[in-house]
């Protein structure tokens, strides 16, 4: 099956909302799928990469855009 990229627009939500939304989506995804989270919460732009490193997924990118962050995570297990 082809890997997918799912997008979550969590702009306006505060910590740990974007992280929890991402984890919920990750649980429903297949290994190899990517989740792109948009978050306007600065704390989440740091917390999501910390969580990804701790539990063993891959941080593909973390970019600041116009008033929000785009964080892409790849499911590895």
């Amino acid at each position: 099956m082809m890997a997918e990229r799912r997008k979550i627009d969590a702009r306006g939500a505060f910590c740990p909302g974007p992280l929890m939304e991402m984890i919920a989506t990750l649980k429903l995804s297949q290994v190899g799928d990517e989740i792109e989270v948009w978050s306007s919460d600065k704390g989440s732009s740091k917390d999501i990469p910390e969580w990804v490193a701790k539990v063993g997924h891959e941080l593909v990118s973390n970019e600041e855009r116009d008033g929000y962050w785009s964080i892409v995570v790849k499911k590895l297990k």
């Binding site: 939500a13 505060f14 740990p16 909302g17 929890m20 984890i23 919920a24 649980k27």
Partner: peptide, 17 residues
């Protein structure tokens, strides 16, 4: 007032996830 996650909902999410 802001869009902070609801306290009880956070606990529910912790249980589910």
């Amino acid at each position: 007032e802001r869009r902070a996650p609801d306290t009880l909902q956070l606990l529910q999410q912790g249980r589910e996830l």
